[in-house]
Computed example of a mutant assay.
Amino acid sequence: MNGKVVIIAGGAGVQGRVAARLLADAGATVVLADLSAADLETAAAGIEGALAVPTDISDPDSWQTLVDRTLATFGRLDGLANFAAVLSRAGAETTELAVWERTLKINLTGAWLGVKAVIPAMRAGGGGSIVNVGSVDGLVGRGGGTAYQASKGGMRLLSKSAAIEFAAQGIRVNSVHPGPMKNRMTNVVGPKADASGIATLEAKLTAQVPMGRLGAAEDIAYAVRFLLSDEASFITGVDLPVDGGLTAQ
């Protein structure tokens, strides 16, 4: 990753922060993008040379500002990691239209806008790598979370379609699909969850994973870093589950 410049959308979140640190450790310069300027500054602290750019990933103009600032500051753009997402747990019958539209706008439209925004810069630079972070819920049906599953399933095919479209231009597009994550249990259970509720859900999900544990942010970050790197130069259009064997069953 030496000398590469990578945008991390959702860079103020837990997974985005860990990915930023691991990418920087490997020699990359990272640009952190998220909605909250304060959270971004906290995420960027301690990462040498990191640039924090407040960004609304559901807005094309905001994406363009992000790319323009990246190029103005560093003169190049080599990678994009799309971590930004929101979670909806309601099923097909109970999902409200506003929730459906917001979930797809951020998770799927936001990812598409990111791909659209970075392609010209990557093309001008001779190539690049895009990694969209989906979910195992975008690979298999699990019941409930209908809008979330639809958005992540759409991201998977967005990645494959873009991979074919831009392969000849040296731009690779892949997707990483996390399984159950230990640091996301409060989001799954809800903000009012108590420790016992989280522990019960963790135990239930752990029992479903053949490797017998929940994922950590580092598990996802290492996979993303690999796909962004030149070590993955002949890999494009791939779905990479990072799920302890969950979807292999």
Rank of each mutant, 00 (worst) to 15 (best):
A44W: 12
A45V: 01
A45Q: 14
A45G: 11
A45C: 07
G46Q: 10
G46S: 10
I47E: 12
E48I: 02
E48K: 14
G49A: 14
A50I: 06
A50M: 08
A50T: 01
A50R: 07
A50V: 02
L51A: 11
A52F: 11
V53N: 01
V53L: 10
V53P: 03
P54M: 05
P54G: 06
P54A: 08
T55M: 10
T55G: 10
T55C: 15
D56A: 07
D56T: 03
D56C: 00
D56S: 07
I57G: 00
I57E: 00
I57L: 11
S58I: 00
S58T: 10
D59F: 00
D59P: 01
D59I: 06
D59Y: 02
P60M: 04
P60V: 07
D61K: 11
D61C: 00
D61F: 01
S62I: 03
S62R: 02
W63L: 08
W63I: 03
Q64R: 15
Q64D: 15
Q64V: 02
T65K: 00
L66T: 02
L66M: 05
D68T: 10
D68F: 02
D68S: 13
D68P: 00
T70I: 03
A72S: 13
A72C: 00
A72D: 13
T73F: 06
T73D: 08
F74C: 08
F74W: 09
F74H: 15
F74I: 05
G75Y: 01
R76S: 13
R76E: 07
R76K: 13
L77F: 03
D78R: 13
D78K: 12
G79A: 06
G79K: 12
G79I: 09
L80P: 04
L80M: 10
A81G: 08
A81S: 12
A81P: 02
N82L: 12
N82M: 14
N82A: 14
N82I: 13
F83V: 09
F83C: 06
F83R: 04
A84S: 11
A84W: 01
A84R: 00
A84C: 07
A84L: 01
A84E: 05
A85V: 09
A85I: 09
V86S: 04
V86F: 12
L87Y: 15
L87R: 08
S88D: 15
S88Y: 04
R89V: 13
R89M: 12
R89N: 09
R89H: 07
A90L: 04
G91F: 07
A92I: 15
A92Q: 03
T94N: 11
T95M: 09
T95Y: 10
T95Q: 08
T95G: 04
E96L: 08
L97M: 11
L97F: 13
A98I: 06
A98C: 01
W100F: 13
E101V: 08
E101A: 11
R102V: 03
R102Q: 14
R102H: 13
L104I: 12
L104P: 02
K105P: 01
K105F: 06
K105A: 15
K105I: 00
K105N: 15
I106N: 00
I106Y: 05
